[in-house]
Nucleic acid binder design. Structure first.
Length: 286
DNA sequence: ACAGGATCCTGGGGGC
DNA sequence: TGCCCCCAGGATCCTG
């Protein structure tokens, strides 16, 4: 669930609560997460100070002293929050760090356990992790030439390309659909078929939609909360996502839902043009 | 190289 | 109430 805007919100919430804190002690649930947690990390974390908290794609990076990096992925249902230690510990809480400041704790809770927390030793190891996973650029760092070249180099449809973290980092199912609506592009269009103007429009739409969502603290459909436990509000602004059958905000045509790249995909069949086969030359819709 | 499906999990919602 | 099925913001692995 958490995509770039949700992860960015968590990071912005956590930063003032964590920066400068000392980790006093660590407890874990022992339940397996997406990536295995090594027991020795508990002792390595104790006594470390938090230098900085940042985001890379959908990854949260908690930078510690002595070049240690706690890297968290929220998966589908992960929550990373700072709360008073006195607050009851909810079910499915897997990692608790006791912090030096104001009797607070950093808690990682993940109902479905598709998320992960990993400790990296050394900046080079962290960098290698991101380069090995081939994580693409942040949407606003995507330069025109690279973007056009990546689109031209694939046979895949736009929806599949937007979900590919190697091409652009941070976009997930919600913001892929919302960006394609913003750009007025059909999710089944082949990436390689985009004109330069369309490619530019899509890149701009991604940034616009993500910035709007960050302003609203992301989207809370179910489990997502920010680093302070507050929900997001962007779900109230969805124009296509989860609006199947409801009228398009532009043209009142009912929003359609199909399955693409294994994910439910929502679009306006009128505003977002027709499928490639149907758009005969010389007979362009709109 | 890619689509499609299955997989890792838990829980909410709808239909009956 | 309960049961069963479908669905879910992600990523990865396998097969064809």
């Amino acid at each position: 669930m958490p995509e770039l805007p949700e992860v960015e919100t968590v990071v912005r919430d956590l930063r003032p609560c964590l920066t400068g804190c000392r980790i006093q002690s660590v407890t874990v649930s022992g339940k397996p997460l997406r990536r295995p947690w090594s027991p020795e990390w508990q002792t390595q974390l104790v006594g470390r100070h938090v230098r900085h908290v940042r985001r890379r794609g959908k990854w949260i990076v908690v930078e510690l002293d002595r070049e240690r990096f706690l890297v968290v992925h929220l998966g589908m249902s992960g929550q990373l929050t700072v709360v008073p230690a006195a607050e009851a510990i909810a079910d499915h809480t897997h990692i608790v760090l006791n912090l030096s400041r104001n009797r607070t704790q950093l808690r990682f809770r993940d109902i479905r356990r598709f998320g992960s927390a990993t400790l990296f030793e050394g900046r080079a190891v962290l960098e290698r992790f991101f380069s090995d996973s081939d994580l693409g650029p942040e949407p606003w760092d995507l330069d025109t030439a690279t973007w056009r070249q990546r689109l031209a180099a694939t046979e895949r449809c736009l929806k599949a390309v937007l979900l590919d973290q190697r091409i652009v980092a941070g976009v997930g199912n919600i913001y892929a659909d919302e960006s394609l609506f913003e750009a007025r592009l059909h999710p089944e269009r082949l990436a390689r078929d985009l004109t330069p103007a369309e490619a530019r429009r899509l890149r701009k739409a991604i940034v616009t939609v993500l910035e709007r969502a960050i302003d609203k603290r992301g989207s809370s459909i179910r489990d997502y909360v920010g680093g302070s436990g507050l929900k997001g509000q962007y779900q109230q602004e969805f124009r296509v996502y989860r609006r199947t059958g409801e009228p398009c905000v532009n043209c009142r045509t009912p929003i359609e839902r199909i399955c693409l790249a294994g994910r439910s995909t929502h679009f306006c069949p009128d505003c977002q043009g027709s499928e490639p086969e149907a758009s005969a030359p010389g007979k362009r819709s709109r």
